[in-house]
């Protein structure tokens, strides 16, 4: 198991290198000039040129990239063009809000989704199944922003039960958590249903019954535990989506998280901040996938012993 984790860790290194290149190059593909934005529309050309020189924007891209990576490895992501604050500080101050949102979604959605899916599979063809899948399809088809707006309209404006934006108390988290989690819940419900149906047809489930095991234990220990292998893979992909999904949720609920910082920075062509945030997103994605891989090894001995 230790070797398996170590190997997965090593594998993330080349991945991070590629990601850093892509992140860096993409920014420079966006049209617009940060020096111009900084100097103002009216500023004379010489002034713009001076700012450009000062920010190092006149260096060849490869030099800029190497400098950036060198600093990044030392934990320095540069200073924001806009606020002149260190990017790491800026990201950290916003990250705590985003992570709250992500957790608020993750704390219920996977469990509810898997539960619905498994129940639907066990009660296949009944009204439970029909109801569960109808619910899942609704959850899948409803866009997050629409759910959020409807939630605000209903729970905040009409009933006055929940705050319509900001963070601070648990109450503030309820609506955003709903927006963050619904998609994951619905997707996992559908995947765990089909995965469970597949495992229920497996020979070893029949073996478990043939040895006289109780039906609930046959379902849980023999069918469900094996059906999780597929579900965990999907979960990893979904959590990645959750991070980028936070951009929308933050905008709807006016939460000053990483997503908001990103949209603002893009508007301002704040290269160091954009790069820093994208790198953070990528790092989180890689980290989550690493965790999923390890989890995968825990539930699937075939992978662990390869």
């Amino acid at each position: 198991m230790g070797r398996y984790v170590a190997r997965r860790l090593l594998e993330t290194i080349p991945l991070m290198v590629i990601i850093s290149i892509v992140v860096f190059m993409f920014i420079h593909l966006i049209p617009g000039d940060p020096a111009k934005t900084l100097a103002g529309v009216e500023a004379p050309l010489e002034e713009v040129e001076a700012i450009r020189e000062e920010l190092g924007l006149n260096d060849p891209l490869i030099v800029q990239y190497v400098n950036w990576v060198k600093d990044a490895l030392k934990g320095d992501l540069g200073r924001s063009f806009k606020s002149d604050l260190p990017v790491t500080e800026l990201i950290w101050s916003r990250f705590q809000f985003t992570i709250q949102l992500v957790f608020a979604g993750l704390i219920w959605a996977p469990f509810v989704g898997i539960f619905i899916g498994v129940m639907c599979a066990i009660k296949r063809g009944t009204f439970v199944d029909l109801g569960g899948m109808l619910f899942a399809i609704c959850g899948l088809s409803a866009p997050g922003f629409w759910l959020g707006l409807m939630g605000i309209q209903f729970f905040s404006v009409k009933m006055g039960l929940l705050p319509s934006g900001g963070l601070g108390t648990l109450k503030h988290l309820i609506l955003p958590s709903m927006v963050m989690g619904t998609g994951i819940m619905a997707t996992l419900a559908r995947y765990s249903r089909s995965s469970m149906l597949e495992t229920l047809r497996e020979d070893y489930v029949r073996t478990a019954r043939a040895k006289g095991q109780r039906e609930q234990i046959v379902m849980f220990r023999h069918a469900f535990m094996n059906s999780l292998i597929q579900v965990v893979t999907i979960l990893g992909l979904q959590i990645g989506g959750l991070l980028s999904g936070s951009v929308l949720t933050e905008t709807i609920f006016s939460i000053p998280g990483m997503g908001r910082l990103l949209t603002d920075s893009i508007a301002y062509r704040d290269y160091p901040t954009i790069q820093g945030i994208l790198l953070m997103f990528a790092l989180q994605y890689v980290l989550i996938n690493l965790i999923v891989d390890v989890l995968y090894g825990v539930i699937n001995p075939k992978i662990r012993y390869d």
Binding site: K211, G212, R221, N300
Partner: peptide
């Protein structure tokens, strides 16, 4: 349930798939 696996038991055609792959 008490009879299955006790008084009466069964083995199957595909031994490789008849054992639970995630249990020792």
């Amino acid at each position: 349930r008490k009879i299955r696996g006790g008084k009466m038991s069964m083995i199957f055609q595909e031994p490789m798939s008849a054992l639970n792959p995630s249990m020792r």
